[in-house]
Simulated assay, not measured.
Amino acid sequence: MIRKALALLVFSTSLAGAQEAPEGLAKAPGAYLRGLDKIAAASSDLTLAVGEAARYGSLSVRLDECRYPADDPAANAYAFLEITDTSVNKMVFRGWMIAQNPALSALDHQRYDVWVLRCKID
């Protein structure tokens, strides 16, 4: 299972600039994310449309793309995110996050965690 997810991650990363989604994956117009403030022990949900950015604490979270298995939309989600820490004006994450395996490609930030819940398909 982890090998399959890792292979898909590598394949998906190489397609970051591609126009077409890989066979079996469909593009969604948005995504649902969750953020955790580790110091305040508080979580918040974010809903983003593709191309939209939202603030979460000192982070700016931008969704570039969300893909999901076309035959089972609830099975997984793959989101390409760009996350910038605006307090130091530095990009802290850029890449694909996988809902079922968030540890494979995770945000490494001292205060915040952000992960993908699912694609928004409605």
Rank of each mutant, 00 (worst) to 15 (best):
R118G: 04
M91I: 14
V114G: 01
L59I: 05
V114N: 00
W96T: 05
A18G: 11
P69I: 04
A5W: 00
L15R: 14
S58E: 14
E52T: 04
T13L: 12
R34I: 13
A26V: 05
K38I: 07
S14F: 15
M97N: 05
Y112Q: 04
A26W: 01
L9Y: 10
M91S: 10
G30V: 02
I2Y: 09
P69S: 05
K27G: 10
E23W: 09
V92Q: 05
A31Y: 00
K120M: 06
Y112C: 01
E20V: 15
L33M: 07
D122S: 10
L81P: 07
L117W: 02
N76Y: 00
K38T: 11
P102D: 08
E82K: 13
G30P: 04
Y56M: 14
L104S: 09
V61I: 14
R67T: 01
M1S: 13
S14A: 14
R118N: 12
L107Y: 04
R94H: 14
T84Y: 02
T47H: 03
A28K: 06
A26Y: 07
A53P: 00
A74E: 11
A103Q: 12
R55D: 14
S105G: 01
N101M: 10
R118A: 09
V114P: 08
N101Q: 13
D45C: 04
L15P: 09
L117N: 13
A16L: 09
V10A: 13
L25H: 01
